[in-house]
């Protein structure tokens, strides 16, 4: 009698309990076909080269920022009186707090570097051309969203440098004709930078921009899947 085998690409499973367990799930959700198509019988283009990795690396760093950011959020307090002290506590008392903050800060810098490398590669190889025009546009917006995340996150430790950089940064859009004053007012939540500013920068940094960025990344990836990898010139 031939033994029952479950084949996942190069992996062959003959253990009957494992097969029964898998069938328990597969009979209900039909995941075998999905796993074959998306994992075990899937092929990826060979030798794409290091320069093609930077989009994926940027995405990975984004996910790392989400993880380290969530951990920092557990101890951080968005209050102008105690924000700085809460960061000091994260750095000095919280186990591995220094590491999470370090990785979050370095991650922000590295993410901008990797996005710029990714963008240069796409530009030089002409990958933004038809049919991928819209994906370039989504990508530029992703870069702008990243700078927005960097700008809003920079204020949160409520340091002298962050405060005054934000004063200059929120002053800039005030030069826009007609609506500039309103933009500045909306960014600061008033005439001056204070508690209201910190609260809205916190909301923007930990909720609004990450959600929008995640959505834009989704749109970016869906287009890549529909259009395929561009391949060499």
């Amino acid at each position: 009698m031939e033994k029952e085998t479950l084949v996942f690409g190069p992996v062959k499973i003959t253990n009957k309990y494992l097969i029964q367990g898998f069938n328990l799930i597969n009979d209900r959700f039909g995941i075998k076909e999905l796993l074959d198509d998306e994992v075990f019988e899937k092929i990826a283009p060979g030798h794409l080269g290091l320069w093609s990795c930077f989009g994926g690396i940027s995405f990975f760093i984004f996910m790392m920022q989400v993880v380290t950011g969530l951990l920092l959020m557990i101890y951080y307090q968005p209050n102008i009186d105690v924000a700085h002290a809460s960061i000091t506590k994260i750095m000095n008392e919280v186990p591995f707090g220094w590491l999470m903050r370090g990785m979050h800060a370095w991650g922000a810098n590295l993410m901008i570097v990797t996005i710029l490398i990714h963008m240069s590669k796409i530009y030089v190889s002409g990958i933004y051309k038809a049919p991928r025009e819209l994906n370039w546009i989504v990508g530029v917006h992703l870069f702008l969203l990243t700078t927005g995340l960097a700008f809003s996150g920079y204020l949160l430790p409520w340091t002298q440098l962050a405060y005054w950089a934000t004063v200059v940064g929120t002053e800039t859009p005030a030069a826009v004709p007609y609506i500039g004053e309103y933009i500045r007012y909306a960014m600061r939540g008033g005439e001056e930078i204070g508690q209201v500013t910190l609260t809205r920068f916190f909301a923007i940094h930990v909720c609004i921009l990450p959600l929008v960025t995640a959505g834009a990344i989704g749109a970016h990836l869906v287009q890549i899947r529909r259009q395929g990898i561009a391949g060499p010139c």
């Binding site: 102008i80 700085h84 370090g102 370095w106 700078t147 440098l161 962050a162 405060y163 950089a165």
Partner: peptide
């Protein structure tokens, strides 16, 4: 990088003390 060059934490913000040189992060 985080171990060799830990994230810096400057002094707390003071709205009444404008620093002489205000500079943003490198990407700005």
């Amino acid at each position: 990088l985080s171990t060799l060059f830990p994230a810096h934490l400057g002094p707390m913000a003071d709205p009444f003390d404008t620093p002489a040189h205000i500079k943003p992060e490198w990407y700005f």
